[in-house]
Amino acid sequence: MSFMSKSPWVIHYDASSCNGCDIEVLATLCPGFDAERFGVINTGNPKHADIFLVTGSVNSRNIHVIREIYNQMPEPKAVIACGCCACEGGVFHDCYNVIGGVDRAIPVDVYAPGCAVRPEALIDAIVEAEKVLEEKYEAMKKGEHAPVIPLDAPVLKKGA
C-alpha cells in the first residue's frame, strides 16, 4: 500500500448515531481489525486529528458541535461519514429531529455505508481518506484552503 505512507490520527464524534457505528469505529481500532497497525490512532483533541469520523445524522442541537470540531482541525483534513445515517439519514431520514447526512453540516470526502458500518468498510474509507489528504496537501501548497464554516451558517445543500 504505497499511499499508506502516513499515519493519520482520527477523531470520532457521535452526531446522533444509535451506537452501532460508534462501537464499530472503536472495534476498527482495537484487536481483531486493528487499524492501529497502520498508525491510525484515536485522539480526543481536534487539533491533533487528520481524519474526522462522524457517525449518525445531523440535528439542530449538534450541528454546531460538528462544525466546531471541523473548523478546529488543522489542514489538510478529511471527513468520513460512517454508516448510512451519516451518509444520508438512514432509517431515521424522516424523523422530525433529523436534518440529514453529515454533508448538510460540513463537506464530506468519503462515504462509508452500512448499518451498522462494518470495520472492513471503515478501514477501506480510511485508506481512501489518506489519498484525499495527499490531494489536499498538494492543493494547500498551491494556496487552496479548506473552508471555515461559521457555526450558524445555513444547512448545506445535499451532497455538496
Binding site: S16, R61, N62, C95, V98
Partner: peptide, 14 residues
C-alpha cells in the same frame, strides 16, 4: 442531554 434525540417514537405513525 438532547444531542442525539431523533424522535423514534413518532415513527410508529408511519
Amino acid at each position: 442531554i438532547g444531542f442525539i434525540h431523533r424522535g423514534l417514537e413518532k415513527l410508529t405513525e408511519t
